[in-house]
Design a protein around this nucleic acid. Structure first.
Lengths: 225, 225
DNA sequence: ATAGTTTTGTGATATTCGTCACATTTAATA
DNA sequence: TATTAAATGTGACGAATATCACAAAACTAT
């Protein structure tokens, strides 16, 4: 498998700060692995031994809460996966599972640490990324707990359209049960609300195929519930 | 005001990794500021211009959500405040307010960046701290949204006893309204539940003075709701 | 294709909890 | 201490949504 990082089209902004020699080291010390839809990439409770970089495919980051499975967020390339769980704890504090077929780089943790050591730019990029993640998770949590469920569902659909698929027409990569786990509600409520959205002409659905037909309304629902 | 960081009893684990010269730079480029209970230390929406280190007193980190004020978490010394908001965004994404009289170090941001640049150990400590914060906030969010409200209230009381005051008898540093903002419920519900806890002999209250009289029960409530 | 599994749709019912209203207590300040 | 403001206690009521039950549909794999 091609493993010259300097030629990789999926390179991270942090890695762009590395010089050619450092990129060479990275090239020599990582492997690219494919995962099938549904495969587990990181499993909560196991030891974390590698830095993982997502270069292709969609994943969910989820955590086994006190009662049910909670999807913390969805992530798309290019992004590191599991930095917090690798540097912040001995064992993985959450799971990561492929929602589509994925390609992932496993980077040796000591090599990665050396890069942090050698390149201030690289490590500062990582610090900034971690800071952004945290702000994002504060906000996500505040939304989730304060907004009405309808608003959260609208947000999920808008997130798919705006950030993940960049199109108002897409195929839902997760089940209604999983949407429920993402916005903390039951699958029945998700089903009912989606029907409602369709009845109101905000979306059109056909199986997993979904189209946003009235973006304005959806944004209004996101705001007002 | 005393400003030799090498003599500071409140030094952070990250700063402990600095050499004497670097500590000297830090000493010369920070000021210690006192805040009174209720004072605003960081205000959401303003520019973030300093790194802030909390060396004394209790603070709340709160965010103005779509509808109401949400307390993200409470923080106690020694800890940096607002790293994410300083490195992750131009303007502060949340507010920090003193719950008790506080002492805080303001560190010049360029000086702090130079320290990150110069000391790999220092910057790696910061990375680890950020990673731990994020894991913690995933978990907090999962709890908050999944547990029953009673369980969350029990958690708050246990957090005061175990982590913040390290005693089963303490004076509540926040109002019932604020407890509500912390666990996403109304102040009325907080009031009702506290009465209930007292009636069941789990706690004893006298104004803001609170004593946990049956820790086992409280832990059970935390688990089972 | 067909049997089996997973996902989805929908009604009836129960529960939790927020909201409003107002009384009461406690704290803050002149 | 008098006056005002802030925090708390408590009842009645309603809205949002979880849960249960079951049917229908869609997808998987032999």
């Amino acid at each position: 498998m091609d493993s010259d990082c300097s030629l990789c089209p999926y390179i991270s902004t942090a890695e762009a700060k590395l010089d050619s020699c450092q990129l060479k080291t990275l090239s020599d010390n990582h492997i690219v692995v494919s995962f099938k839809k549904g495969d587990s990439i990181i499993k909560q409770g196991t030891y974390s031994t590698n830095i993982i970089f997502l270069r292709k495919g969609l994943v969910k980051i989820h955590i086994t809460g006190p009662y049910s499975e909670q999807i913390v967020k969805l992530a798309k390339p290019p992004t590191y996966l599991g930095l917090p769980t690798t540097f912040g704890a001995k064992v993985n504090q959450y799971s990561i599972t492929a929602l589509e077929d994925c390609e992932v780089c496993f980077i040796d943790i000591t090599v990665f640490r050396n890069l942090l050591r050698e390149s201030e730019h690289f490590s500062f990029e990582i610090i900034q990324a971690l800071c952004r993640y945290e702000i994002e998770s504060f906000r996500r949590c505040a939304n989730r707990t304060q907004k009405l469920t309808r608003g959260n569902l609208a947000d999920v659909l808008l997130d798919f359209a705006n950030n993940i698929f960049k199109s108002d027409s897409f195929i839902l990569p997760i089940s209604q049960q999983e949407i429920g786990n993402l916005i903390d509600t039951s699958r029945e409520s998700v089903s009912r609300m989606l029907s409602e959205f369709e009845k109101d002409g905000v979306i059109r659905m056909n199986g997993k195929q979904l189209e946003i037909t009235n973006r304005k309304s959806l944004e209004l629902i996101s705001l007002k519930g």
